[in-house]
């Protein structure tokens, strides 16, 4: 069995702070980490490797320093890694990202299962996985938290939804997006991390030409959506003491809560 796991390097958003004066993100000194859901996807893939000798390839698109998340994936036990890096990939929305990753997977060619995280903590869109499934014409299951079994070319999974969960059977090849599995993802092994830093590490570097993509379908140029502006959601607390009798204060409070879309 051959598995491709798609992973992303993201800023640790729990550390992201806003510049109080400019309202801009302070990116300096913020660690880059493996997106948490992607780490869970890696763990599920490696469990399949433990159980049925699957061969696991980790793929990431990003700047050259994103090689670190692939080294971590090798550290956890992946067999090979591919870094997609090219200036032409920059500024991609999920449309262009799914094109890029889709083409890379087509180049890898031989696979039974694609795993990725449900969503990335920097964007929270949960779009890239399904869009790759559509690009490749594969069946998909999102928010998977468990793989029950893999048998005779079919995979049985459970996936969460708003009301509870569903059990699905998908014919392979298929794409799963993963979140909230019950097992904590394993830590990388020291020896593997040492190997990952070596010249002969099992990491391939591909650019736009390698995956046979045109610049017009990549990055900012190939995107269908653009960021028009960014702004800070809220810089200062209102610090407002409500006045009146109890029903008045409560009614005013609930009004504000509704206005802020908190109910």
């Amino acid at each position: 069995m051959k598995i491709v796991v798609l992973i992303k390097q993201v800023p640790d958003t729990t550390e992201v702070k806003l510049d109080k004066k400019t309202g801009n993100l302070i990116r300096e000194g913020v660690d880059s980490i493996v997106n948490p859901d992607d780490r869970q996807a890696l763990e599920l893939a490696l469990q399949l490797k433990d159980d049925c000798q699957a061969m696991v390839t980790a793929v990431s698109m990003g700047p050259p320093q994103a090689v670190d998340v692939l080294s971590e994936a090798l550290g956890m036990g992946c067999d090979a890694a591919v870094l997609l890096t090219d200036r032409a990939f920059a500024g991609a929305d999920t449309w262009a990202t799914s094109t890029t990753l889709g083409k890379a997977i087509e180049k890898i060619g031989d696979f039974d299962l694609i795993l990725c995280g449900y969503q990335a903590i920097d964007g929270d869109t949960a779009q890239t996985g399904p869009q790759i499934a559509e690009y490749l014409g594969l069946p998909q299951a999102c928010y998977v938290d468990n793989i029950e079994n893999v048998e005779a070319g079919k995979i049985t999974v459970t996936r969460r939804n708003d009301e509870g969960y569903e059990r699905l059977s998908l014919t392979l090849p298929a794409l799963l997006t993963v979140s909230k599995i019950t097992v904590a993802p394993r830590y990388p092994m020291m020896g593997n991390l040492i190997d990952a830093g070596c010249e002969d590490a099992a990491i391939q570097i591909w650019n736009a030409v390698d995956i046979g993509a045109l610049n017009s379908e990549l990055g900012m140029e190939g995107s269908l959506t653009q960021v028009v502006k960014t702004f800070s959601p809220k810089t200062k607390r209102a610090g407002e003491l409500l006045e009146g009798d109890v029903p008045e204060m409560v009614s005013e409070l609930l009004g504000k809560v509704r206005q802020a879309h908190l109910i």
């Binding site: 040492i194 830093g197 590490a201």
Partner: peptide, 20 residues
Amino acid sequence: MSMIRSDSEALIKKTMARFV
């Protein structure tokens, strides 16, 4: 193909820091 590799020392530090 260009050679892009991680610094193992930094990765080990980061992994241990996360473990801790």
